[in-house]
């Protein structure tokens, strides 16, 4: 039995105001896969993520993490298995110093102080934030905050990493750094993002959500080459697949000149 399987079966979620954010979502993500969940604003991505670690309760349907059904009783175990990195690091870094923040999870899991110390040092080193250890979170830059937020989750050694918009608000250099870091992880990874170039680079598989339903689920390249599907779901090809804008402009110019 593997802990790394995420199975979502006919998941439906209706918010109290009557909005059906998820209508019928099913998929299975297996061990070690890296999956991008994409979709327009309001497609249900964030709602889906909140279901994955039990922050919301399904209106109907079920979620299994490593063959364990997600329910009140199994929540503590499942939350240990799934490491969730929130979109806004300010929500995730609430402790006075970086060290305390990264130690928060392991301490809750009941590790000994020496063990916690070791874990914190290791994961901070891993994300390249060792020098930030005693700083308060409000003294960090956006990229540093993001890396520390990932460290806070890694310190609990989760089997599955779930990240909401990991590259949001990062400068190109910090984005590169983060993507390199994420590429090296061996965990099962689930990302939601509007940064389709990141999805293309990091994920072999893409799930397209549209109005609370799965519209497509397949290899990243196949999906990003399906122009009709992308247009239907208010998406477009990643920039790296759109060809060089300068050359395209030149070609168009030559074409229109030859027509004249």
């Amino acid at each position: 039995m593997s802990h790394h399987i995420v199975e979502v079966k006919n998941l439906r979620h209706v918010y109290p105001d009557g909005t059906a954010a998820l209508k019928d979502v099913s998929f299975i993500i297996t061990h070690g896969e890296s999956v991008g969940i994409i979709g327009a604003n309001g497609a249900g991505k964030s709602t889906l993520l909140q279901h994955l670690n039990g922050c919301l309760e399904p209106s109907s349907g079920a979620i299994h993490i490593g063959h364990t059904p997600l329910s009140k009783g199994t929540l503590p175990d499942i939350r240990r298995t799934i490491g969730m990195v929130f979109q806004d690091p300010d929500d995730q870094l609430f402790m006075p110093t970086v060290f305390d923040d990264v130690a928060f999870g392991p301490l809750n899991l009941g590790y000994t102080p020496a063990d916690v110390e070791q874990r914190v040092t290791d994961v901070l080193e891993l994300v390249g934030a060792g020098h930030l250890r005693d700083k308060p979170p409000y003294h960090l830059s956006g990229g540093e905050k993001k890396r520390v937020a990932i460290a806070t989750v890694l310190s609990m050694s989760p089997d599955i990493l779930v990240m909401d918009e990991p590259t949001n608000g990062l400068d190109p250099f910090a984005r590169r750094q983060l993507m390199k870091l994420l590429r090296d992880f061996k965990h099962t990874r689930i990302f939601t993002s509007h940064d389709l170039d990141m999805v293309l680079e990091l994920c072999e598989r893409v799930i397209v959500l549209h109005e609370g339903e799965v519209w497509a689920d397949g290899p990243a390249l196949e999906i990003f080459n399906n122009d009709k599907l992308l247009a239907e779901c208010r998406l477009e090809k990643p920039f790296s697949m759109q060809g060089c804008p300068v050359c395209r402009k030149q070609k168009q110019d030559i074409f229109s000149e030859s027509q004249e």
């Binding site: 240990r80 799934i82 929130f86 929500d91 609430f94 305390d100 928060f104 989750v153």
Partner: peptide, 16 residues
Amino acid sequence: MAMLARGFTGEFHASR
């Protein structure tokens, strides 16, 4: 939510 996701049970552990 972020606290719950990291195993918060109502107890703050001082590490210092």
